[in-house]
Amino acid sequence: MVGLSLGETHFIQGGIAQDLRCDGRKRLTYRPISVETGVIPQTNGSARVRMGATDVIASVKAELGKPSLLQPDKGKVSIYVDCSSTAEPAFEGRGGDELAAELSNALQRCLLGGKSGAGAGIDLSSLIVVEGKICWDLYIDGLVVSSDGNLLDALGAAIKAALSNTGIPRVQVAAGTSNDEHPEVDVSDEEFLQFDTSRVPVIVTLTKVGRHYIVDATSEEESQMSSAVSISVNRQGHICGITKRGGVGLDPSIILDMISVAKHVSEQLINKLDSEIASAEAEEES
């Protein structure tokens, strides 16, 4: 995006300091969020989320695979993000690769937990069909259609909505198969298991500008940030992941304050998002 003049940056910083941003929001207010599910029929689940002028699409595809040797009782989930060239001229060619990789890593850290799989927002054990032999592999793809700041929160919300829309086919394992052979499975075309998304977290990004931090920063506000901390919180109030970007370091007390603020903000965001997802699903069925 284009740069900002000194007068504009001063106006933006003043707005954040006085708790009245350029579009009238307060520091902890989100832009209108709209959710649309089932936008891509070829996938097991998909969703489109708009936050103001930010527009992202997330899709989930499920495939039968073999569990990892390290964790034979858990399925596998991969997250990729692509930045469409139509979102920003800078994304043309390989321009968006760096941002896409950064977003992918942040989403994996916020949604999938550590290497041990502990604290993952997605219950990987529910993806097991036969322990050690067959499991579901989930491929989550995010596409940035329009970029006006706060991409990480929008992608997190879109993934949560896409998982709500996901239907995993029911699998029948043939009986009588010996323990050594590869089991034969029958994948149903009619029956689908609904994914349990009650523990999938939402991502709240707090962007520090001057002495204050804000949620749901626009592109202009992000250009004024010194650092940003993204915290994923689930409905139970548990922290599922934290990432930070921006070059300026933060005092630990500020981070703790940010975490408590993120917990508080996430309650309203989760309720808002769940109601939007429910209405989107209802609208899709009708």
């Binding site: 003043g14 006085q18 009238g24």
Partner: peptide, 13 residues
């Protein structure tokens, strides 16, 4: 030097 809050409200409106 920030714009006063009352004026800022009208600018945002």
């Amino acid at each position: 030097n920030y714009t006063i809050l009352e004026t800022r409200k009208y600018i945002s409106r």
